[in-house]
Nucleic acid binder design. Structure first.
Ligand SMILES: [Mn+2]
Ligand SMILES: [Mn+2]
Ligand SMILES: [Zn+2]
Ligand SMILES: [Zn+2]
Lengths: 137, 137
DNA sequence: ATTATATTGAGAAAGATTCGCATTTGTATC
DNA sequence: GATACAAATGCGAATCTTTCTCAATATAAT
């Protein structure tokens, strides 16, 4: 039951929130826009307004349940937060999104921040390229 | 004369383009939104439409004269391309934008791309933090 | 079951960027 | 320098994503 997850996140266990959380947890696709989630809600019969999807995703983000990315200008992409931080590499041809972690890069960023006198709070790293599948085509 | 720069970039030397390029080249502020450029045009008396500013900046980007960034969702930021690649670190309090380059990070990204079978085309790295000035306040 | 409060849905509104099109400008030619 | 034609401009309308407003509804505690 996801109600527990919501409650412990300080959120009332409403139908729209349960529906959306369950969907995020069960979807094999990890990176989705608000519109993607909205369409999934429509298809599963459950009536959830688009505004509610946006609100809930934003609340989930504040609660740490979800992470928001800005891969392209123009719209946000969300993914269920599974704990471990990672960065992304994505295909400019087909839009595929892959993930990676690199401890060297992580450390280097902290050194850079320190050198410039910044207290680092976050970072966003996206590598753009052509994926293996799209190279032979 | 900037006409040369425009011509060699394959662009007709029109008044709006000259005005905008000259402004970018003379401004001490390196990172600006289309709106910023538009306002500067208004102040300098020259009448340039907002749509034209957007068009010209996009053309400059295609011509390699300018680089576009997406520091925050919701609007693009442009900077004159001075040749050497660099990444950014910016203050979440005051919005200051600083720059840096790190060869280790650059190389690591290529290794990651190779490891995943991608042909890397580009990347975007932004470190968010609190700048020195904003820490004692 | 009742109440007090938080949440929802629908459409309006906002903010950034692009489009459509009549008018103007740049440049190549005479 | 005048002429001609394609390219570029400016304006407002249109688009797209996201947020807001607010009356209606659902939730959690009593
Ligand atoms: Mn991810
Ligand atoms: Mn820069
Ligand atoms: Zn691909
Ligand atoms: Zn600051």
């Amino acid at each position: 039951m996801d109600s527990k997850d919501l409650k412990s996140a300080g959120l009332k266990a409403t139908l729209p929130r349960l529906k959306i959380l369950t969907f995020l947890q069960s979807s094999p696709v990890r990176h989705m826009s608000a519109e993607d989630v909205y369409k999934a809600m429509l298809e599963s019969g459950e009536d959830v307004g688009l505004a509610t999807v946006y609100r809930v995703l934003t609340q989930f983000e504040s609660a740490g349940l979800v992470t928001r990315h800005h891969f392209d200008e123009g719209h946000s992409v969300f993914e269920l937060n599974l704990g471990e931080h990672h960065d992304h590499i994505l295909c400019v041809k087909c839009g595929k999104v892959d993930e990676f972690t690199d401890q060297v890069i992580e450390e280097r960023q902290h050194e850079i921040a320190k050198k410039q006198g910044y207290t680092i709070t976050d970072h966003a790293l996206v590598i753009y390229g052509v994926c293996p599948d799209c190279q032979n085509a």
